[in-house]
Design a protein around this nucleic acid. Structure first.
Lengths: 198, 198
DNA sequence: CAAGTTTCGAACAGAGAGTCCATTATCGTA
DNA sequence: TACGATAATGGACTCTCTGTTCGAAACTTG
């Protein structure tokens, strides 16, 4: 008994996801009503509620799919050579890559348009990655570990947002370079005459 | 003709501001209804609309007052000796000080509870300060100036949030120290065996 | 084709926003 | 203190949005 999904249901779900996504590129999540979504998707009101309990359910479902997609991309990348980037922040290049491919989704999560749900979503995913990365290095610092994690997560989101809104022409590799320079080296590496050892 | 303000109006406004503030410490801004506010403040519905056009107006008004307060505090501090902190990030110690005094307000702005309005508010204020601070230093870097500004602003907000939610016992001076270490030195200063020249 | 799903549209109750107005309470001042 | 001005109140009303229900119509799968 294979999980057969009615084409109509699949069409409807896809239409709803797409509608919410494109609406959120114009308005904030809060400003989008269920009415807007079903108008945009050209779907009946009762049909919407037959699939989702409300707009938050729809949004969460969309992120869940994206998350699965990310996992696939990561395990696929792990199969190939993986001796490229090392040390802390080894997550970033793959993430910028994925963000470039799903720009609309990440634009919403990083730009504050997605409300608390989207904000929490991306922060949670990134936090886990950064914690993983940082767990390699010894905790010989006076600065609390969890603070460093949040610091890196925020820096990454800031980089994403700046990329999309100000320099969309940059390649994932380029924005990754800028991000790593700043996050690793801090301000002192670019302000005065101070230098850091390579 | 001195600007005389009716006591009743002042009372009402204060009650409404206080009501919104304390409600937002429990719920997010979006989840707070006008009904909630007037119930909490014990004020009639029509009275509310006689003073503000809606809850967003009330919120903005509150931030405006806080902003004026900050300006006063800064100009008062400038009168005294000001040879303390130097270089970039010279804004931070005074800001952590102010945030400590108005913890509830800043908690809302930094914690994402205040919606886009609060987010934009604090980012705008901080951006101006950081731009000012950074304008002293020469732009001899490969990293775009505005990206650095956003990076610092996000790091500061992250520090604020971490302070309130995880280490409320810390003094403004202590959190300021942690923030500066990380923002100035970056990750390399605390991870591997890498060191930077003082 | 036939049985099983899905979609549709319309209707309904409930909550909240924002407006209006007549009445009452409070304030500043002469 | 008394009076004119201003503010507060509660209730009623219109809208918009939400979430639910149901029978009929349309579509899908086998």
């Amino acid at each position: 008994m294979p999980e057969v999904i009615d084409r109509r249901a699949a069409r409807t779900r896809k239409a709803l996801h797409h509608a919410l996504l494109s609406l959120m590129l114009r308005k904030s999540y809060e400003a989008v009503s269920v009415q807007d979504i079903i108008d945009e998707a050209d779907v009946g009101r009762s049909t919407f509620y037959a699939h989702y309990t409300g707009k938050e359910d729809l949004l969460r479902n969309g992120f869940q799919m994206l998350r699965a997609e990310l996992r696939d991309a990561q395990s696929a990348a792990r199969t190939k050579d993986d001796g490229s980037k090392q040390g802390p922040l080894s997550f970033s290049s793959a993430m910028f890559e994925h963000a470039g491919r799903y720009a609309d989704h990440y634009r919403i999560m990083a730009g504050g348009r997605g409300g608390l749900v989207a904000e929490n979503e991306i922060r949670q995913v990134l936090s886990e990655m950064v914690r993983e990365d940082l767990s390699m290095a010894p905790d010989s610092s006076t600065i609390p570990r969890e603070f460093v994690v949040q610091f890196v997560v925020s820096a990454f989101i800031t980089a994403l947002n700046w990329w999309f809104e100000r320099r969309p022409k940059l390649t994932p590799a380029q924005i990754d370079g800028i991000f790593r320079d700043l996050a690793l080296g801090g301000l002192s590496s670019l302000v005065g005459g101070e230098r850091r050892i390579a």
